[in-house]
């Protein structure tokens, strides 16, 4: 098969370019530690969240330097997130677990790389660390029904010492069955006023 000389060069350059693209992503994942949502291996019955860690969603310290928040995304709000903000500590490893009891939702913390889908029956796990206290908006970016356009919330990063520890101290229990929501309620005073979203019919 005859291939023109210029075309051979073009093919070679294209292949180098493609390998370069893959390499840049490998560097991002392996070198900089920026991956995406994976498989937690956890599945649950979306009709029976009360039997899971999502029974009482909210944040708690899993260990001295690891904060865990469970969030339920449902038509048409984030719990916590919409009626009270998701509170997380600065300069600490934060893991968010998100699921849905009804339809597919999106979970996008605007201005960060926390951007994932929430699928009934599955658990979305996001791990990150925030450098400094700041407030971020959360939007549901997957169409989820008639009130989709009102589904939003806030994530507020506060200094780590503002989030109370459990009485028993760091439990180190990352599987976090039935996490308490005391941290979210305790810090509600410090949070900016957040209006509950309007749910249109």
């Amino acid at each position: 098969m005859e291939i023109h000389r210029l075309e051979k060069i073009w093919i070679a350059v294209s292949l180098v370019f493609i390998v370069g693209l893959v390499a840049s992503i490998v560097y991002g994942v392996a070198g900089m530690g920026v991956g995406t949502v994976g498989d937690t291996g956890q599945q649950l019955d979306p009709n029976a969240l009360e039997e899971t860690r999502f029974a009482d969603p909210g944040g708690h310290w899993a260990s001295d330097d690891h904060y865990v928040v469970t969030v339920v995304a449902r038509q048409f709000l984030f719990q916590p997130g919409s009626q009270e903000p998701v509170m997380v500590p600065a300069n600490t490893t934060v893991t968010l677990y998100v699921t849905s009891p009804d339809v597919v939702h999106g979970f996008d913390v605007v201005g960060t790389h926390l951007n994932a889908m929430v699928i009934p029956g599955q658990v979305t796990k996001l791990t990150t660390e925030f450098d400094e206290p700041k407030s971020y908006g959360i939007v549901c970016h997957e169409y989820c029904g008639a009130g989709h356009q009102s589904m939003a919330g806030q994530l507020v990063v506060v200094p780590a010492d503002e989030l109370p520890r459990n009485e028993s101290g760091a439990a180190g229990n990352t599987s976090g069955a039935n996490a308490t929501s005391e941290s979210a309620t305790a810090s509600a005073d410090a949070s900016p006023a957040v209006a509950p979203p309007e749910v249109s019919a």
């Binding site: 994976g38 498989d39 699928i119 599955q122 979305t124």
Partner: peptide, 11 residues
């Protein structure tokens, strides 16, 4: 890519 329940390896 943003879906839970699918491994990063597969992605």
């Amino acid at each position: 890519y943003g879906d839970p329940g699918l491994s990063q390896g597969l992605k």
